[in-house]
């Protein structure tokens, strides 16, 4: 197996190259981009990120924790304050709201770590400092006999450079 990396200048070229590679049946494709471009990211991963599920779980956990904690604590040691009921929903809503945001936010960031594959410090050898300048990269894994075909395909899509990296 071999890995090829094509260097591009514009997001539209990357999206087109990825689409053509997919159409020809290559599935192990990765892109590197200096900034977020939905057309590039969607070409590789068409489905929405699962981070949204994490926000939902966090938010629901927060709202349940908020109400459960306040109501349970107020009833665990009952102290009458201003004649108000022990389980007063309006003031506890504020706590529940804050915890919804807090847990939702923390789990969203956790989701970014998990689904974005962060906190892994081993950097792909195909990565290049140019991708944190203004260039894009398309990395394809293929059988050795397909190298020439992919090289031609990437260059047809205006790749400024195509390199082979160890797989």
């Amino acid at each position: 197996m071999a890995r090829l990396v094509g260097i591009f200048e514009l997001p539209a070229q990357v999206a087109a190259a990825v689409k053509q590679l997919r159409d020809r049946g290559y599935t192990d494709i990765e892109t590197y981009a200096p900034a977020p471009f939905p057309e590039v990211d969607d070409a590789v991963h068409p489905k929405p990120s699962k981070v949204r599920l994490m926000t939902l779980i966090g938010g629901l956990t927060g709202v349940i924790t908020g109400y459960a904690m306040t109501i349970w604590m107020a009833n665990n040691w009952q102290i009458m304050i201003g004649g108000k009921p022990f389980s007063s929903i309006p003031p506890y809503t504020i706590i529940a709201f804050e915890l919804t945001i807090l847990f939702g936010g923390i789990l969203t960031v956790l989701g970014l770590f998990i689904f974005g594959g962060l906190a892994k410090f081993k950097i792909d050898p195909a990565y290049d400092a140019r991708f944190s300048a203004e260039d894009f990269g398309v990395v394809v894994r293929c059988r050795d006999q397909d190298v020439a075909e992919i090289d031609a395909l990437l260059r047809d899509n205006d790749a400024t450079e195509v390199n082979l990296v160890e797989s």
Partner: peptide, 19 residues
């Protein structure tokens, strides 16, 4: 944290910033 700007990371990042 090993950020390289691949499609997965940007997708998750965009979604996280939105949420």
């Amino acid at each position: 944290l090993g950020w390289v700007g691949n499609s997965n990371q940007w997708k998750a990042h965009n979604r996280a910033v939105l949420h």
